[in-house]
Simulated assay, not measured.
Amino acid sequence: MTHILRKFNAHVDGYSTHLEIEKITPPLVRDQVEAIKAGGLLGELDVPLGVQKLEAGLMVNSRNKLLMGKAGLTPGKSTRVTFRGVSVSEIDGSQQDEVLIIQGRLNVDSNDWQAQSKTDTDYKIGSITYYKHLIDGQLVYEIDLLNMIGVVDGVDQWADIRGGLGL
């Protein structure tokens, strides 16, 4: 089914940005690879060793003091951002709900101030330690870097390795 994103929102530590949010950039889940050139291989091969650093972002159309106050926190402190989106099928009108939960550190990137125009503010979410993505309540991704959990399509890809390490 074709589902087209209709509306979305971001909650930053519980604060709803539904009147300000303009853009969301979800994390990209990509392999962290290293190339090997073993003597018995015909050519170079990338070997996956985990996941690449996760990064996300959001853009709001305001100068929100509460959001700005989430950037530049002391070490060990982070912010929880929950993205919610609703997609509707053009074929049958069915609705699909998505939820992304991210734990990381907010960094603010203020854009230019211009007279008689709105001022967008970009926030990058870096140092992400936790990412969870659900579609209609079904788990697509759950990545918990600190606890070596890597669920993809409902299957924990790292369970055996964690067990071997006694974690």
Rank of each mutant, 00 (worst) to 15 (best):
K65I: 13
T82H: 07
N61W: 05
S127N: 12
W113P: 01
N107S: 14
A71T: 10
Q103I: 09
G104S: 02
K70T: 14
T74L: 15
D144F: 06
S89I: 00
Q114R: 13
S62V: 12
N111I: 00
L42E: 12
I135F: 06
G50L: 06
S127I: 00
G69F: 05
S117K: 15
E142T: 03
D112N: 11
S127P: 00
R80Q: 14
T74N: 09
K132N: 06
R63C: 12
S117Q: 14
E90T: 06
R105G: 01
M59R: 15
Q114A: 15
V108I: 14
K132W: 05
V108N: 06
Y141A: 04
G14E: 08
L67S: 10
A10K: 09
V47Q: 08
T121S: 07
P27V: 02
L42M: 12
S127E: 14
L106D: 03
V47T: 04
T82Q: 13
K77S: 12
I24Y: 03
N147H: 08
D13E: 12
V86I: 15
I143K: 04
T82C: 10
K77M: 13
E22A: 10
G39D: 07
Q116R: 10
I128F: 09
Y141H: 14
V81K: 11
D112G: 03
K37F: 13
D92S: 01
L73N: 07
L67R: 08
M148W: 08
L145I: 12
D92E: 00
S87Q: 10
V12K: 11
Y123D: 02
P26K: 03
R105L: 10
V108A: 15
G43Y: 08
S94D: 01
W113G: 05
S127A: 15
K23M: 11
L45H: 11
L28G: 03
T121L: 08
H18E: 13
L54G: 00
T129Q: 13
L106G: 00
L42P: 02
Y130G: 06
S117D: 05
T129W: 05
T119Y: 00
I24M: 11
E90W: 00
I143E: 01
S94W: 01
L19Q: 12
Q114Y: 02
E90I: 05
M59N: 08
L45A: 14
E34T: 04
E55N: 12
E20W: 10
Q103P: 00
G69D: 15
D46T: 02
A115W: 07
T74V: 15
N64H: 07
L73W: 03
L145V: 10
N64V: 08
A115R: 06
L139C: 11
T25Y: 02
Q114D: 09
